[in-house]
Amino acid sequence: MFDLTGKTALVTGATGGIGEGIARALHERGATVTLSGTREEKLQALAADLGERVHYRVANLSDREAVDALVPAAEEAMGSLDILVNNAGITRDNIFMRMKDDEWDQVMEVNLASAFRLSRAAIKGMMRRRYGRIIGITSVVGVTGNPGQANYAAAKAGMIGMTKSIAREVASRNITANAIAPGFIETAMTDALNDKQRESILQSVPAARLGTTLDIAAAAVYLASEEAGYVTGQTLHVNGGMAMI
């Protein structure tokens, strides 16, 4: 089960912790993968480490031209695009009353607008081939809210609504759209927390540990698989039980 041999995937934000984990897992299950990110050396290193069936492309998702070029480039490199993982995301945290227009706009652009544009581009080929898997990496805070993250939470909630709408539109064409909502995952983003913050987070997690990128990657493999073809419009929460929604 969950064999992805012969499938093609594009993962954005592939140099981040979760993105790299997802790219590695899809590749391990047999998929050909195009890695996208902003840091060329990291993309290159990851591609070299994975070996065959890998392409990479530098793309800054706040640049609309770069976004629009990404799916065609991935399709050209791999011959098709079966699986799109909209993982790239940034944070520009600030308390709501102090949040700048710019902080709001940047987060919306990278976290939500790019996912819209990439999904729109990818669906065309998926419709033709009557097969597709669109996976958005959202966040538990898109559902629960989080102080200091009104922009991030709004973008992540937006992704869930977009995912459900895509799912309804294209389900009859054998294309699924789902979201994965990680809770607190061990990445550079959570490494920045101090011990006190970490402890207080763990108190709210029944599993009593932070998640790993592997926990998220496993969810992505499942949603990317042919076997998950009857699952669409869903948000799979991977959070150790910290929110049960």
Binding site: K124, M127, R128, E169, V170, S172, R173
Partner: peptide
């Protein structure tokens, strides 16, 4: 509406 998109394709 989806059929019309597919027809165009």
């Amino acid at each position: 509406s989806l059929d019309t998109v597919e027809l165009v394709m």
